[in-house]
């Protein structure tokens, strides 16, 4: 699974297979981190705006 595990071989098969895997995992996690952060930011900014209005 990781290049440091002993079964790992630097061959084309491993590179394609795990390349694809890590690419997919990367996109998914990056996407999720992005939307969570953005949602948090949106919430904060909205809440600051709201606080400003109510005071």
């Amino acid at each position: 699974m990781f290049p440091f595990s002993f079964e790992w071989v630097w061959d084309i098969g491993h590179m394609i297979f795990f390349g694809g895997l890590w690419y997919a995992v990367g996109i998914l996690s990056a996407g999720m981190i992005y939307v969570i952060l953005k949602a948090a930011w949106d919430t904060m900014s909205e809440s600051i705006n709201n606080s400003g209005e109510s005071h």
Binding site: G31, Y34, V35, I36, K38, A39, A40, D42, T43, E46, S47
Partner: peptide, 14 residues
Amino acid sequence: VPFFHHLAHNMHGI
């Protein structure tokens, strides 16, 4: 919940 609201919205976005 605003956070959830935003989260849902942002998720739809991408």
